[in-house]
């Protein structure tokens, strides 16, 4: 299993390295602007870092779906499926490697954000328009989030867990397209519709599950936990279909 994960990482590490490189450059720009008091540059580098954090995490998940798609639909997949590993292991390695990557990347950006905000406070000593901007940004996603460290951490976790469940649901849709609908017309469209329907259903489920929880932090944690549970169920279902039906 560890070996499979090692090769899953090997397939995607270059993108991750590039993401890290760009982030390091943006962070350097942020620090430079912060200590040379360039307000415009500071705003720009904070913007870039925010965009990197969001799209970095999104892209890592997306890339993993693309890799699975390639493994099932090109000759390179033989490399994976000729090894004596069940589809549960093959897919499990993908889910774990990618889930960990998303959590680590998300955690990394969260920590970096926390650090940068602290530096910002230390330098400028008060809430300024940038802080207001962050607040506005978070409010657009969820109005009830208080600006405390634990609430933000729980919120980040629930977002990441939700993204992981979306990625695994995308696996399922792609596997359905490759294993069950292969060769049929509109198979891409059908599997995309399945993907959207499942995501809508899970969103609805999450809403119901957390409606009666008054504490925002608890609610976020429960939401994240349920998302991971959904990911686990989707994983089992997907692996089962692969094991029984997938021809590469």
């Amino acid at each position: 299993m560890f070996k499979l994960m090692k090769y899953e990482f090997r397939k995607t590490w270059i993108t991750k390295l590039i993401l890290l490189g760009i982030t390091a450059a943006a962070e350097a720009a942020f620090l430079f602007n912060l200590y040379t008091d360039k307000e415009d540059g500071l705003a720009a580098s904070i913007g870039i870092l925010t965009v990197l954090a969001i799209f970095g995490v999104l892209f890592i998940g997306l890339q993993s779906v693309i890799t699975l798609h390639r493994d099932m639909n090109t000759k390179q997949g033989y490399m994976l499926f000729m090894t004596p590993n069940s589809c549960y292991k093959v897919l499990g390695a993908k889910v774990l490697e990618n889930g960990l990557s998303i959590l680590v990347t998300g955690g990394f950006f969260f920590a970096l954000g926390a650090l940068d905000i602290t530096l910002l406070f230390a330098k400028q000593g008060q809430l300024n328009q940038i802080w207001q901007m962050i607040q506005d940004f978070i409010k657009t996603i969820n109005e009830e989030i208080p600006l405390t460290a634990d609430a933000l951490a729980a919120f980040t976790f629930s977002l990441l867990a939700d993204w992981i469940s979306i990625v695994v649901t995308a696996y399922l849709a792609d596997v359905i397209s490759a294993a069950l609908l292969n060769g049929k017309s509109f198979n891409g469209v059908i599997s995309f519709v399945i993907f959207l329907a499942l995501n809508w259903a899970f969103g609805w489920l999450l809403g119901i599950a957390t409606r009666s929880i008054p504490n925002v932090v608890t609610s976020m944690l429960v939401q994240g936990g349920i998302s991971l549970l959904i990911a686990a169920v989707m994983y089992v279902l997907t692996a089962q279909i692969m094991e029984k039906k997938l021809s590469v």
Binding site: R10, K11, K75, Q76, Y78, M79
Partner: peptide, 12 residues
């Protein structure tokens, strides 16, 4: 041990 006719190794 199966060897496919197409090249299948990862490009890296």
């Amino acid at each position: 041990a199966y060897m496919s006719t197409e090249p299948y190794f990862y490009t890296w």
